[in-house]
């Protein structure tokens, strides 16, 4: 049994290490995104050097085929990725948690209908959904991408919320709260939401990473932010034609996306421990 005793502290510090690394990687992106609001190394939309230059001290990620600084564009891409992540997860969480909790309380028939609706929406290809939203809103914009991703995420969040809320509803402390006259809305606020929150938070963080990747795919296909916006997906798409002569144009935005998603996943992993008081205290 001593092995278990010895193993535990090591595992815990590993868990907090992933959390810190995740926090640093995500924090880096957030800092860069905020920085672009006030300062960028070069003007993102004007020529700053020769065309398709390799990375140098002047241009850390080289230049694109119009001679614009790529690092500047990647910095702005960071802002767009975070904007999409926050927007899409925000919309997905607001719709998903609300409908999920309602489904958990609904009559059998309505509950089954909502559960089926979630499953259908999850099975529906996100790209097709994005095209529908773009078609409905006339032009492809950052907001149409955020809305499409938000709707797609709301089904995943809704399904998870419904199951989690149902599980909490069956617990004894809910019956106990009801025997003392706690109203249903109050039970949702003080018992159900806090009890499903830790799991939801981890899920939101993971969905954030998926939304960043999905936005890159949408932009790559021309369904995301239109040209002056330097989304990573659009940078990848522009670099596609010159990938053999100037590979760094494709590697740099890909690397930025990779770092963000890895950071978010590590962060989500660590969040699980932070959200649970039983784990937090035992540390």
């Amino acid at each position: 049994m001593t092995t278990i005793e010895l193993d535990r502290p090591a595992r815990r510090s590993a868990a907090s290490l992933t959390f810190i690394v995740g926090l640093i990687l995500v924090g880096l992106h957030v800092a860069i995104a905020l920085l672009t609001l006030v300062w960028t190394p070069y003007d993102p939309s004007s020529t700053a050097g020769g065309r398709l230059e390799a990375p140098s001290l002047l241009h850390w990620a080289g230049t694109d085929r119009l001679g614009r600084d790529l690092f500047t564009q990647i910095m702005i891409g960071s802002r767009i990725a975070l904007q999409v992540g926050i927007g899409a997860v925000g919309i997905g969480a607001a719709i998903g948690v609300t409908i999920g909790v309602l489904a958990a309380f609904a009559t059998r028939l309505l509950d089954d209908a909502l559960a089926a609706a979630f499953d259908i929406l999850i099975a529906f290809p996100t790209l097709l959904l994005a095209m529908l939203v773009v078609a409905a809103s006339d032009t492809a914009s950052l907001w149409s991408a955020i809305l499409a991703l938000g709707i797609a995420l709301s089904a995943i969040v809704g399904r998870l919320t419904r199951i989690l809320a149902k599980r909490v509803l069956q617990m004894d402390f809910i019956t106990a709260a009801r025997t003392s006259g706690t109203s249903w809305p109050r039970i949702v606020v003080i018992h159900i939401l806090p009890n499903i929150w830790p799991t939801l938070m981890v899920n939101f963080a993971l969905q954030f990473g998926l939304a960043a990747i999905a936005e890159a795919s949408l932009s790559y296909l021309g369904l995301g932010a239109p040209p002056p916006n330097a989304s990573w997906g659009r940078l990848l798409q522009e670099a596609q034609g010159t990938v053999y002569t100037a590979p760094f144009g494709a590697i740099a935005p890909g690397l930025a996306l990779l770092v963000l998603v890895i950071g978010i996943n590590l962060f989500a992993d660590g969040l699980r421990d932070v959200g649970d008081p039983t784990r937090r205290r035992s540390r």
Binding site: F173, R178, T179, G181, H191, N195, T278
Partner: peptide, 29 residues
């Protein structure tokens, strides 16, 4: 409920919300 009757359950661990401090749970009723 509460005014006319209140219930004490068999298993006190599951009858209390695990994520809520005891003082706050007691403050509810």
């Amino acid at each position: 409920r509460g005014a006319a009757s209140a219930v004490v359950f068999q298993e006190p661990l599951t009858a209390l919300d695990p994520l809520m401090k005891l003082g706050r749970q007691l403050a509810e009723p």
